[in-house]
Design a protein around this nucleic acid. Sequence first.
DNA 1: CTGAAAGCGCTTACAG
DNA 2: CTGAAAGCGCTTACAG
Lengths: 343, 343
Amino acid sequence: MAEAEPKRPATIHQVASLAGVSHTTVSRYLQDKDSLKPKTRVKVEFAVKTLGYRPNLVARSMRTRRTNRLAIVLAAGPYFPGRLLAAAFETAHRAGYQVEVVSIEGGARVRAERIDELAESGQVEGILAISSIDLKGKRSRRVPIVESDIYDDHLRGLGELADASQVREIIEYLSSLGHRTFFHVAGAQTHASARNRKSVYLETIEDLGLRSAGAVDGDWSAQSGFDAITSLPDDCGVTAVVAGNDGVALGVIRGACSRGWEVPRDLSVFGWDDEEHGRFSTPSLSTVAVDREARGRYAITRLLAEIHGQPVPEPPNRTINRLIFRESTAPPPSAASRRRSTD
Amino acid sequence: MAEAEPKRPATIHQVASLAGVSHTTVSRYLQDKDSLKPKTRVKVEFAVKTLGYRPNLVARSMRTRRTNRLAIVLAAGPYFPGRLLAAAFETAHRAGYQVEVVSIEGGARVRAERIDELAESGQVEGILAISSIDLKGKRSRRVPIVESDIYDDHLRGLGELADASQVREIIEYLSSLGHRTFFHVAGAQTHASARNRKSVYLETIEDLGLRSAGAVDGDWSAQSGFDAITSLPDDCGVTAVVAGNDGVALGVIRGACSRGWEVPRDLSVFGWDDEEHGRFSTPSLSTVAVDREARGRYAITRLLAEIHGQPVPEPPNRTINRLIFRESTAPPPSAASRRRSTD
DNA sequence: CTGAAAGCGCTTACAG
DNA sequence: CTGAAAGCGCTTACAG
């Protein structure tokens, strides 16, 4: 029950008194060692070493009104953007910022509230939101807030769906292989990326005069892929599936297999993310290579630019999203075999 | 270039003056609304609402010497403990703590240094280290530091290898199926868990009088599994592989396949972690279900207990680690077929 | 129940 | 090049 009583760290005053200078001088030393007379510097240096002094960053923050901290807000759920996060952390640290992670359960409203709170707390200088949020109107203007998912939106007039444009490429490719009836298992609709891909899917099917057996909302999980594909009627005629991500694709493949549809012989499946497991699974996954590290880096870079009131930097080359063709896609079964299998 | 100039948030003084009370009273209101006379409370309440006041947490931290922040330190690398982190975040938030994540590149020494720095910075009240660190001697005693990986160690005298005891169960199981020659692809040796599993592997092979074709150090990646299995000589006689995790197992399976060894007909492969992809891959993976959420929760709980000088809480029931048998394991090929395949 | 005062550990003009 | 003073926004004894 007793609180631990760790020994107090040295303060700037103790350093000053040991060095025989004012604490102002010590502070100056901390900012720029060269602003001191060499003789003074040596004394301060010695005192700092001796006492193992480290400035109290909280006190510094209070005085400078800068915390050197960012927050990344995630929606709790099966999708955890590890690669993006790792890159974001690194970029922030390189720039001298520490990163606090806040994962929030609940809908867009709850998220917006927590984010607002965070923005007002004075604890962070900027916020990166991974899943989409709904801050309309009451959006706090105290600190910059960047949404990772829709990062292209305000940038080059690419339109809201820029991030999902590969969906069209996927469908065009599969269509060129001969596929005519498609199916989409979308990711969690709390993510702009999932909504965008779904929109582009629907739009492209329409544009190209293809058929769709549906666009089901999943939650990014493999289970959602499994469930979606096994719920399809036998005579749906689907020969190609566009999955929300690689995990979903895996679930689709397993589900297809469980009802006797072999991939890619009877069904082609396209994933998204180029995760490691898709490279090594059997069949290996056709997918979209998304440079999540680049996105993580860029999101932070953009946030830092906003914090410092600098112009928004160029986004990374968009070719970082590229299609990868592996074993899970192939031409559809011939009309003959198809008719046989649906009899 | 110009710094953004957001409007300053309201201070406690402004609230006080609007309410016509002292700032001391406002502070009191913040701590405990009931300590005010109802009439006063109403005035303060009104002022707080009107100004949209939120206390500056940095100033509060400075005064109270408490930051309500924890740090989680990760080693940069292909392994990113998403599920553990998500649970850790949630547990910390529930207890009113925010979590800062620091991922560190470099060896155990560099990690130890950064952790020490963090501990001394006064910015966090405790540190959870995911990968193992080497703080011997200079270990900072300013704030508690918990290592997630070896959390059983100091607890019940279970010994350093408690966490890896399922390795023995795996080998015993495979041995009962008839396997005699094993192979181990270990995880990154920067993790105590990887080192422990390797030790238990070696020990068990020895104890049971089995053969091992080696224990290769990997980095938790599927590629490392692929490389390890494809580097094995044709006549190694291996029929069972214990992989560091599910990703590694997947790589082993794919690699085995590439050299004509079918899983599980020719080779049994055991994973670790029960990741979603292993449940849906073909063959699905036999693995160890590790409740990473429970571990994340427990690690934070333990850290909080140390921070508050409370007794270390009971660890979660150890049965959270349990073997799951799926399609990737089976009896070894018969002596006859084995002889044929190695001819 | 409320207020005046002190102080948490720094940085930043302002003098010298 | 260095120091004395003020102040960042809070909380916490101490009086009343």
